[in-house]
């Protein structure tokens, strides 16, 4: 595996033009080869492990570098390994309790409380669950530390079907082996405008952007570790969106892009107010 860190470190940065973080922030340290070089130097004891950990969190896991690399070096996976080795596990919130008595559970990860609307639309009761850290998604890279947390999560959701449209929450649910369903597959939205598919090739109505931004900055460890740089990435992505309202199937993307002023809707917005322009 060290050879792969070396391969990247010695490469003349042939993927840097595709890295959304390096491009949007201008940070030399955020180019994939420089991130990998920091890990390499930490492996050789030349820089402190915490520096390597911070370097490895400058990534959104978009995979653009890996797709471009002639040798197919799995940069995101290698950086994830480096984080597992060098970064301290994140402190996560306790597993939240489910409110209400129903099989379906609407998972809230932002301020929107859309359970009642979902219940109305489906004509059946919906319980709710609210998380402020995507169900502890930041802990997942530390598999041994995450085991107890995931077991608690699995137990809490046992016998329920979680409804969610956030990729970050989805990662936690998958890791905990919890049965869940995307909101838009349960309740297909009506949308005929442009669609931004970041980190996914999901079925969604509308017209996918011909040239979508590589990443909105909401994914991977960047947002939690370097929020200001993540906002730079989001601003870059927002600048590439059309001026009209755009839909995305992913609430993480929606929140990142809305945070920098872009007019973006997700399935929750479409459920809550299908014909109303989103608040800015």
């Amino acid at each position: 595996m060290s050879a792969s860190y070396e391969s990247c470190s010695f490469c003349p940065q042939l993927c840097r033009h595709l890295c959304p973080v390096a491009v949007a922030t201008g940070h030399e340290a955020a180019t994939p080869p420089k991130m990998m070089a920091a890990v390499l130097l930490a492996q050789r004891g030349r820089i402190p492990p915490e520096d390597a950990a911070r370097a490895a969190t400058l990534c959104t896991d978009c995979g653009a570098c890996e797709r471009h690399c002639k040798y197919g070096i799995e940069v995101p996976a290698l950086l994830a390994q480096a984080r597992a080795r060098y970064a301290s596990p994140a402190t996560v919130q306790p597993v939240p309790a489910i409110q209400g008595n129903a099989t379906l559970v609407a998972l809230y990860c932002d301020e929107r409380r859309w359970g009642p609307a979902l219940a109305d639309a489906l004509g059946q009761p919906v319980a709710t669950m609210a998380t402020s850290d995507h169900l502890g998604q930041a802990l997942l890279e530390h598999r041994d530390r995450a085991a107890a947390h995931l077991a608690s999560l699995n137990a809490a959701c046992s016998g329920h079907k979680v409804v969610c449209c956030c990729s970050r929450c989805g990662e936690s649910l998958d890791a905990a082996k919890i049965s869940w369903v995307r909101l838009e597959t349960l309740l297909p939205p009506t949308w005929d405008g442009p669609v931004y598919l970041c980190h996914g090739k999901l079925d969604f109505p509308g017209q996918p952007l011909e040239r979508p931004p590589t990443c909105c900055g909401a994914h991977g460890p960047l947002e939690a570790s370097h929020p200001a740089l993540a906002a730079d990435v989001a601003r870059d992505a927002a600048a590439m969106l059309p001026s009209t309202s755009v839909a995305t199937p992913d609430s993480a993307c929606r929140n990142a892009l809305r945070g920098v002023g872009a007019d973006v809707r997700d399935p929750i917005d479409l459920l809550l107010a299908p014909n109303t322009p989103p608040a800015t």
């Binding site: 003349p12 940070h27 340290a29 070089a37 920091a38 520096d51 370097a55």
Partner: peptide, 13 residues
């Protein structure tokens, strides 16, 4: 002055 940024600027190709 983050050591990471300094390290990255200490080397070109």
């Amino acid at each position: 002055e983050d050591p990471l940024d300094l390290l990255a600027a200490g080397r070109d190709l």
